[in-house]
């Protein structure tokens, strides 16, 4: 228990002291996770809505697959991305292994199924309300996809935030494809793993608290935006 309080103090000190190294790590974490959340949303939102609205063979299997992908072990994703991006791998010519871009790729692969699965649920609920009206207006199922996504945007913001949370809290894949290189690919989670393995548990926990604070701040901001817009748009 004492250790936790010590870490809390340390975390406040770290935040208050605005240590440039820590700041760099925090900024990189947020930046990469946001990019991955946006990229994952760009893939996952249309995909989820398409599955929700569409009627095509294999749809049920796709839903089961998507839900199963929610539990995708990040280490496996990391390994696959590593093998793809490795110089000896098929995408080796890109030369992005052990760069922030590789982290974004791995995070995006983890985020996209989450966003798609949750977006499918949200879009399916919206489609139940909209189907008759949109069909009556002559809207095709394909055309309904962007309409549903736009109309469910406030609920989907939460979905994208869940994706951001997964990206920001991700360690296994990020460690493998980023390499936890000091000043280049070291993010909050890999820094925490490093300090843990150095036995500096208070510092590791303090970094963890900073991470929680960051995720909390992003969520609070998004929640405020959502509330404000929902009030103004009904």
């Amino acid at each position: 228990m004492l250790e936790i309080f010590a870490s809390l103090g340390l975390a406040l000190g770290l935040i208050g002291g605005a240590d440039p190294t820590l700041l760099g790590i925090v900024v990189l974490s947020i930046e990469l996770s946001l990019v991955a959340a946006v990229a994952g949303a760009a893939i996952g939102l249309p995909l989820g809505a398409l599955i929700a609205v569409g009627r095509f063979p294999g749809r049920r299997s796709l839903i089961v697959l998507l839900n199963a992908l929610l539990g995708l072990p990040s280490v496996v994703v990391g390994l696959v991305v590593y093998l793809l991006l490795s110089r000896a791998g098929p995408l080796g010519t890109l030369g992005i292994l052990f760069t922030p871009a590789a982290i974004v790729v791995a995070q995006t692969l983890l985020v996209a199924p989450i966003v798609a699965a949750l977006a499918r649920q949200t879009a399916e609920d919206a489609w139940k309300d909209y189907e008759e009206q949109l069909t009556s207006l002559g809207v095709s199922r394909l055309r309904a996809v962007p309409t549903i996504l736009w109309d469910a945007r406030f609920s989907l913001l939460t979905v994208v935030l869940a994706g951001f949370g997964r990206a920001a809290s991700e360690v296994g894949a990020v460690m493998i494809v980023g390499g936890n290189i000091d000043g280049v690919t070291r993010v909050m989670t890999t820094a925490i793993a490093l300090e843990t393995s150095k036995g500096d548990l208070p510092l590791a926990l303090a970094l963890g608290l900073v991470l929680i604070a960051v995720v909390l701040a992003v969520n609070a901001g998004a929640y405020a935006i959502r509330e404000w817009s929902a009030r103004h748009h009904g």
């Binding site: 009206q133 949109l134 002559g138 309409t147 736009w150 109309d151 945007r153 748009h233 009904g234």
Partner: peptide, 17 residues
């Protein structure tokens, strides 16, 4: 069923479609 946009845009949407 009102789309989550302005009254005006609800109509232009139907027309655009």
């Amino acid at each position: 069923v009102m789309l989550r946009r302005s009254a005006f845009a609800n109509i232009t949407y139907a027309l655009a479609v």
